[in-house]
Amino acid sequence: MLDSVPDKHISKRWAKLVFGPALEAGLVLLVGIGFAVLANSLSPFGLQWSRNYFPTPPATSEGPDRVSTAAPRVNAQAEAKARIESRGYAAWTFERAAEAFRDPLRLSGQIVFVDARAEIPYRRGHIPGALQFDPYRPDHQLLEVVAACLRAMRVIVYCTGGACEDAELAAALLEQAGVPKSRLAIYVGGFTEWLERGQPVEPPRTGPERIDKEVGP
């Protein structure tokens, strides 16, 4: 009987140490979830709960390739090319993209470049004449971009290049909207390579600037 007194005391102390903060943590979590739901609904950058933001089928080369998406860019272009082709899109090199850019058909809208980056990096600089189409916020430009793509013979979609999958996501959305897959091509090197190769951009550069700052996410 006497032995149970210290035990009771210890269990009370333990309960005091654990139970109160744990209950409090649970309450904070519940209220925090409510706060998050409200903040997301009010935020201009808020995400939709049920939308599938990644409609492309997973690349067939899973495993180490998937891990390497966040790795330093060793063979990033080769990996990107394999990933794009495994999803059934034509993977274009810089040479093909540059050739299409110089083609007079581009000026008549038969060849269209689509920039799948977000609005801010697009405004900082993009391939001249490229239409912006952010696959995460497609509602803004969908009608205009789809109309232009349906008129074109060839649509070249790009993002920052390498591990960036946004061009493929944009291509998948365009395909869902009725643009034939055979017309869609992904420029593998993306805007990073375009800039590195000293190609024209819009608006024009005014001086030497850091590429990594310019390309953005």
């Binding site: 979830i33 939709q48 939308r51």
Partner: peptide
Amino acid sequence: VLNATAILLPWL
């Protein structure tokens, strides 16, 4: 689930 994670964690 992916969306919920990306929505809830930052605001939490």
